[in-house]
Design a protein around this nucleic acid. Sequence first.
DNA 1: GCACAAATTTAGGTATCTCTAAAACTGTGC
DNA 2: GCACAGTTTTAGAGATACCTAAATTTGTGC
Lengths: 220, 220
Amino acid sequence: MAVNLTHSMQDYLKTIFMLTADHTRVPTTRIAQTLNVQPASVTSMIKKLADCHLVDHQSYHGVALTESGRTAALEMIRHHRLLETYLSTALGYDWADVHEEADRLEHYISEEFEDRIASMLGNPLYDPHGDPIPGRDGVLPPTPWPCLLDVPAPATVTIRRVDSSQRDALVFLSSKGITIGTTCTVLKTASSYIMIDVSSTHKTVRLPNAIVQRLFVDQI
Amino acid sequence: MAVNLTHSMQDYLKTIFMLTADHTRVPTTRIAQTLNVQPASVTSMIKKLADCHLVDHQSYHGVALTESGRTAALEMIRHHRLLETYLSTALGYDWADVHEEADRLEHYISEEFEDRIASMLGNPLYDPHGDPIPGRDGVLPPTPWPCLLDVPAPATVTIRRVDSSQRDALVFLSSKGITIGTTCTVLKTASSYIMIDVSSTHKTVRLPNAIVQRLFVDQI
DNA sequence: GCACAAATTTAGGTATCTCTAAAACTGTGC
DNA sequence: GCACAGTTTTAGAGATACCTAAATTTGTGC
């Protein structure tokens, strides 16, 4: 039951967790795409994870995390998001650059390191992209914010979370002065974009839907 | 020539550098002991390093770093010692605990991470044990301090460097209030120990030679 | 229900780094 | 100058995690 997880097993568990939206099973191909490996490699790793009772695998019908798999995944995600927060807050990294560094380091930091950066940061609940940081107990802080795509104009909103999976989107947003906590007013909703006014810069910005669907906001 | 070094290759190069005192060649067995692997494993890795022109290997007569091997080793040592300094200074680690954490992380930090912690620390020249931190150019700051074993009583000295290879010695020294910068007076030199007075604590401490030989000092 | 495309798994192979056991070499002691 | 102990290398094998290519399974379209 209590297994020593290899670096790769941790990566797979984390990936499966992130791809598990609303209790659906995750197909092999999705994991392969996300990790940039061949589907055949995923199958063999999944077999190994299933042997350790970390995932439930039904041949040809995808995979889901077990309770212990979920716990292990959340521990990696805690490492990752604490590192992102630390790199951003303490070392001045740009929010577009924290992911890559954290992805490498998350496998190698000790519990002591984790504790020290967590308490130095004041045990933050959210990372620089607004993603929730699991507690040591594995509990995820809430993320109740709706997608900006679903907010009808006119509306004034505060950015709470950004889907960080596309680096380009992060670079684009910060070039427009948009980050977590930024307040904007939605001026117009078109079919493929929206127009917003960014309150801190007093500029009007056109956001294509590809970006809008990555923003999650508080309505004011 | 410009090769992608694996994690293991980096470990071997660093080890060979550290075992290379005064231009002697390093025997296979010493490397094996230091890295906790079998001599046969060392031989095969050495072969690989020699293929990449990182070491000069003469069968049955040990190994020495080439110029490019030395450069690569110094880069790892820079990572390691900057990390040790950072863990100690910025995260409050005890000097006995920095080594293990740095040893894992040193392989995975980026040049950006290195640069950021270095400048945050003010580009330090020495790590928490007084070991010199190579510059980005590979130049090692000087370590001119004689071993305390060679300093005759009576003498007043400042601790400048501690051989950090034995964790126990570090724990012992800090328990006695002795660290880098501590000033002591040598009261008596016996054959297997010395007696010193630690100026900050006003206490007399008996140091066995096993410890004394690990201390390097400035005479005042 | 059957054919077919897409998804998935199996089979077999590569690379890295390790191990044990056996063979080869070195240099010292006589 | 030779035997022998200790060191080092070679040979062969295991673990991890990846790959490609070939088989298998699934479920949709007709």
